[in-house]
Design a binder for these strands. Structure first.
Length: 593
RNA sequence: GUUCCCAUAGCUCAACUGGAUAGAGCAAUUGCCUUCUAAGCAAUAGGUUUCAGGUUCGAGCCCUGAUGGGAACGCCA
């Protein structure tokens, strides 16, 4: 809620109390911006009060409006249209408020930290566009929480063991001829990914005789010599066989080298890394605890299950008949370990919505086991990115590779910037830096402006836009403001210090001020709703409002010095707020473009 | 078989969680650079919010059903 809304809410409470001895619940209050076609600044929906007043919407609105005008100083006038009470507010109020906005100041930290797990890739193939959405959402979420006064622990769990890694290892061993990232010039993760694909190809060849014999394809690929060898390798790894572990370690290190490079380009980092190879046994002891407590039950074959039919779900396996872990066993273990390690108020898992069921089950299991933090497990579920051809599948090569896409974005940024003749005066290094900032801005905004819950379509044939509702548009708006600042500096115009709040406001200025005032409440809302998209859309709103201002009004050609000064202040504040909003999205704001 | 998610302009997305005449960008047509960056601003056109009912002062949003698309679970991670 904004400061203005709080003040008005208090007024409405007084009115209800005096007239009807009624105490109002906050949820019954409904404010919205007055639509431009009506007179006024802020609108109160009066329908909720009509019953109390025993009047129609129109007279109720009249009564409340008169009361507010009488008793709340900053209300200067009102009108009622249908059930909507439009209030006019003193412009000085907005100016006084906005003069106190310090967008780059994070709220003071309070409460326990949030743990946010994101990225969490498998180490047998390079990152793709789906990972990028995950990583950017996680990163932005962390930034937003931190700015809103919550400590954040950025966690990443590497899925570094299992049959999929063994496949890459085996294929490299058999067909790799000792190829290394250095010898091949390939990034480590791409090299490993290459052999994952090689395994799949060779394995399919080996499966052909089985298929010819009438065995289904899915079953046939499991009967090959290669699959048998991969399983043998996994067994050796679990036994701690020296040579196998050494190979595993060497190849995983290559992968981490590649991932780190991609993380660096994306501008993200982590505080704590977890490795499944170290955590995959963690949940087993808790399975025993669950059996003892009667939360789990054991079948004759020795497998352990939980009955979740009372919760509307199914029976779910938590430990295999042979006593080995499944996916959820590990998550039971890692969640427990994390809450034991950190005194945190929540653990947020940034994981695709294909895992909705999994996390529902995880939460229920922890609840049934009586963990007090079970309610604090949040699955930040985001939609898949689909291609026109359908879902991305690594093995079938229908993925948009993360590094390729980043390259392409930087290339397009360079092309466009050159075509517009905007690299004059930049050194080669500065130009490269700018291309990177712009390319990443376009990519990040493209992914973050969409509601995370929704699946989104990506068409590789159509490049990501640099015009309209895009990252570069926001960055451009910032660069324009930066240019004004530079000019003010060169002309020694000082615009620091207090705001002149008595000066009347132009319509475009007032609109801009109102948008600026939404910054704080929106950061709070984005943190609460875990939604970077809210801030992305806010950034666009802010930029369009400023561009309108910039187009309609001139700063330096303004004759009145006081007006000029305030327009500089307004521009400067917009630039800082825009830069900060972009910062919360992980997007950098250039000084020039 | 069981469960879950989604459907808004030609395309990609919004809509303050039930509020006024559903908004942007792209694509199309058009106007604005001798004035602070035209990656901009402005205008025109584009909608039975998949369909059929229901709830109420009011529904894109809630409920029921249908159609279409996607996902998960049934000893991969």
């Amino acid at each position: 809620m904004t400061a203005l809304q709080s003040i008005l809410a208090e007024g409405i409470r007084q009115w209800l109390h005096q007239q009807f001895q009624h105490t109002l619940a906050d949820s019954a209050l409904n404010f919205q911006e007055t639509r431009p076609e009506f007179e006024g600044d802020i609108t109160v929906v009066v329908f909720p009060f009509t019953k109390l007043a025993g009047l129609g919407p129109e007279p109720t609105g009249q009564q409340l409006g008169a009361f507010l005008q009488e008793n709340v100083d900053l209300v200067t006038g009102f009108n009622v249209v249908k059930g909507f009470l439009n209030l006019s507010i003193q412009p000085e109020f907005y100016l006084k408020e906005v003069a106190q906005l310090h967008p780059e100041q994070a709220l003071p930290t309070s409460g326990k930290p949030f743990m946010v797990e994101f990225a969490s890739p498998n180490t047998n193939k390079p990152l793709h566009l789906g990972h990028i959405r995950n990583i950017l959402l996680g990163d932005s979420l962390c930034r937003i929480l931190a700015h809103n006064g919550t400590d954040v622990l950025r966690l990443c769990l590497y899925n570094d063991r299992g049959i999929h890694i063994c496949k890459s290892m085996l294929a490299w061993k058999k067909f790799g001829n000792g190829e290394t990232p250095e010898s091949s010039g390939l990034k480590g993760d791409h090299l490993i990914g290459k052999y994952y694909v090689v395994f799949d190809q060779k394995n399919r060849e080996q499966a052909e005789p089985f298929i010819a014999a009438g065995i289904e394809k899915d079953a046939a690929v499991l009967q090959t010599e290669l699959t048998r060898e991969a399983q043998e390798m996994l067994r050796l790894w679990e036994e701690g066989d020296e040579a196998t572990v050494a190979l595993w370690k060497k190849m995983n290190d290559w992968v981490y080298g590649g991932f780190n490079e991609t993380f660096r380009r994306l501008g993200v980092h982590f505080n704590h890394l977890y490795f499944e190879s170290e955590t995959y046994l963690l949940g087993k002891s808790i399975v025993q605890e669950g059996l003892d407590k009667g939360v789990f039950y054991q079948k004759e074959d020795g497998s352990v299950w939980i009955d979740l039919t009372a919760d509307g779900l199914d029976h779910k396996l938590v430990l295999r008949a042979d006593g080995t872990s499944v996916y959820i066993t590990q998550d039971i273990g890692t969640a427990t370990e994390r809450f034991n390690t950190f005194d945190a108020q929540a653990c947020v898992y940034v994981v695709g919505n294909e895992q909705d069921y999994h996390f529902k089950v995880l939460k229920l299991i922890m609840k049934h086991l009586g963990r007090p933090w079970a309610e604090q497990l949040h699955h930040f579920s985001y939609g898949m990115i689909e291609l026109p051809s359908g879902k991305m599948k690594s093995r079938e090569g229908t993925v948009v590779d993360a590094d390729d896409l980043i390259d392409e974005m930087e290339f397009t940024a360079a092309e466009r910037t050159r075509a517009l003749g905007k690299i004059e005066g930049l050194s080669e290094a500065e130009a490269q830096e700018l291309f990177h900032v712009l390319g990443m801005g376009a990519l990040k905004y493209f992914l973050l402006k969409v509601d995370p819950k929704k699946k989104m379509l990506f068409n590789p044939e159509e490049s990501i836009d640099f015009q309209g509702n895009t990252g570069p548009f926001l960055q451009y708006t910032h660069a324009r403001i930066a240019a004004l600042r530079r000019r003010a500096l060169s002309e020694s115009i000082d615009f620091s210090g207090d705001w002149n709040t008595a000066l009347p406001l132009h319509a475009a200025e007032l609109k801009l001020v109102k948008v600026l005032l939404k910054f704080r409440p929106l950061v709070a809302e984005a943190a609460q709703a875990l939604s970077p998209a809210l801030l992305a859309n806010y950034a666009y709103d802010l930029a369009t409002s400023y561009n309108k201002f910039y187009h309609d009004l001139s700063v330096f050609n303004e004759a009145d010095e006081a007006v000029r000064r305030r327009r500089l202040q307004l521009s400067d504040l917009t630039g800082r707020t825009l830069a900060q909003t972009l910062e919360l999205l992980g997007i950098r704001a250039p000084q020039q473009m």
